[in-house]
């Protein structure tokens, strides 16, 4: 089974001539794409959600203000920043929790992440899909989600740890995306570390960004 299909995927539309990472910084796109993700999860799981529009808007506003302060000015850092920004969004969604369960199926097997934490599952699905789409559309690269996205034990620790330290949402999203997470200072964007992680296994990008290859860097 294609790992990318582990979470319900969504086909995002982007206005002509606009990069996806720019579109996702607009409330209108954020709201509509988030609702599409909710629908996709709803269809798969049989769970109906209600979205509190104002809490969702608040999530967005806090996220956009946070990344505006820290987004790198160097274009070479944009690629590395994508995953971090997606993790920041996951953090805001978990902390603010705009979704409420409206209707649930009679039987919910709690050994499945989507039933163990229905809201968290939507948030993770959305952030992974957005992360993936930006990488594909704007940077012409792709990630493979890791198996941990299906492991219920990982979700137990994910939920418990993000309640205590919300910045761990950033680390867990990296984990789910198949990247090595930063557990020490998850709230800090470490450009060099992120870029190196990313470029391992993405050698074509090394050439595209005209960066020295790993063997030449030290």
């Amino acid at each position: 089974m294609d790992k990318l299909q582990n979470i319900p995927s969504v086909r995002f539309n982007v206005p002509d001539g606009q990069s996806f990472r720019k579109s996702v910084q607009r409330l209108r796109w954020f709201k509509s794409t988030f609702e599409e993700q909710v629908q996709a999860v709803s269809i798969r799981t049989g769970i109906d959600y209600d979205t509190n529009a104002q809490i969702l808007t608040s999530c967005f506003l806090q996220w956009v203000r946070a990344i505006e302060k820290i987004k790198p000015s160097n274009p070479e850092d944009r690629l590395a920043f994508v995953g971090f920004a997606a993790g920041k969004m996951l953090k805001e969604l978990i902390v603010n929790d705009p979704l409420v369960l409206n209707k649930t199926p009679k039987v919910m097997d709690l050994d499945f992440p989507e039933y163990f934490w229905p809201q968290g599952y939507v948030y993770v699905s959305y952030c992974l899909n957005v992360r993936q789409f930006i990488l594909q559309q704007d940077f012409h690269t792709q990630e493979q989600n890791s198996d941990s996205i299906d492991e219920i034990r990982t979700w137990w620790s994910f939920k418990e740890n993000t309640v205590e330290v919300s910045d761990y949402a950033i680390s867990y999203l990296d984990l789910f995306a198949g990247e090595e997470p930063n557990w020490n200072s998850p709230g800090q964007f470490n450009r060099k570390r992120k870029l190196e992680q990313f470029l391992e296994g993405h050698d074509s990008l090394t050439a595209e960004l005209e960066l020295p290859k790993k063997s030449d860097r030290h």
Binding site: L27, R28, K31, A53, Q54, L56, T57, S58, L61
Partner: peptide, 11 residues
């Protein structure tokens, strides 16, 4: 869009 403006204005 008007609804989005409302939501943002509340926030």
């Amino acid at each position: 869009l008007l609804y989005a403006c409302c939501d943002l204005s509340v926030v």
